[in-house]
Computed example of a mutant assay.
Amino acid sequence: MMTSAAVYGGWVFPQISTRLCTRCAIFARPNGVSFRHRKRFFLTTNCVSDMAVTIASDHSYGNKEVISVTPHIYDYLLTNVREPPILRELREETASMRGSQMQVSPDQAQLLAMLVQILGAKRCIEVGVYTGYSSLAVALVLPESGVLVACERDKNSLEVAKRYYDRAGVSHKVDARHGLAADTLNSMIENGEGCSYDFAFVDAEKRMYQDYFELLLQLVRVGGLIVIDNVLWHGRVADPLVIDKKTESIRSFNKALVDDERVSISMVPIGDGMTICRKR
Rank of each mutant, 00 (worst) to 15 (best):
L111A: 12
I125H: 07
G99K: 02
Q210V: 00
S135N: 12
V138P: 09
S68G: 10
Y74W: 12
F41A: 03
R278S: 08
A113M: 05
S96Q: 10
K155G: 14
M208A: 13
F13E: 11
V81T: 06
F199H: 03
H178P: 01
A168M: 03
E83F: 12
N80T: 11
E261G: 10
E83H: 01
G179K: 07
G32V: 03
L185M: 15
G194W: 01
L241C: 04
V147A: 07
R251N: 08
K279E: 03
L232D: 10
S252K: 10
A150R: 04
H37S: 10
P85H: 07
D272H: 06
V116F: 13
S252Q: 11
E261I: 03
M208T: 02
C195G: 09
H172G: 15
E159I: 11
P30H: 09
C277Q: 00
Y133N: 04
P14D: 04
Y130S: 12
V149T: 05
L142M: 04
V116T: 05
I16V: 11
R177V: 15
Y197E: 00
I73A: 07
I16Y: 13
T44W: 11
S196P: 08
M114T: 04
C47N: 07
C277V: 05
D244I: 14
A150E: 03
A139E: 07
L241M: 03
N254P: 00
L232K: 12
G128D: 09
L158P: 02
E261D: 14
R91E: 07
V263Y: 04
Y197F: 15
V53C: 06
D50M: 02
D75T: 15
L112G: 01
M188P: 09
C24V: 02
N46W: 01
N191C: 09
R82V: 12
R153H: 05
T131V: 10
Q103A: 14
M51H: 08
G32C: 07
E92N: 13
D211P: 00
V268T: 13
A121F: 12
V12R: 15
E152A: 08
V12Y: 09
K122Q: 13
P14H: 04
A204P: 06
R40L: 13
L219P: 06
V220T: 11
M114R: 09
D272P: 14
K122H: 12
R88Y: 04
D58C: 11
K206W: 06
T45F: 02
L217R: 06
P85N: 15
V170N: 08
R82L: 08
D50P: 00
P14Y: 00
Q110A: 15
S100Y: 13
D229P: 01
G192L: 05
I118V: 11
H59W: 06
C277A: 05
E144P: 01
S187P: 03
H178W: 14
L119K: 11
H72W: 05
T94D: 12
D175N: 15
P269I: 03
I265T: 00
Q218R: 15
S57I: 04
P240D: 08
V160G: 05
Q101G: 06
A121T: 15
A25W: 06
V48M: 04
A168T: 07
D239L: 14
E152S: 08
Q15F: 05
C151F: 03
V170K: 03
G192A: 13
A6G: 11
D229I: 01
A121K: 02
S100R: 02
G62D: 14
I26F: 03
Q101C: 08
K245V: 10
K162C: 15
L136E: 01
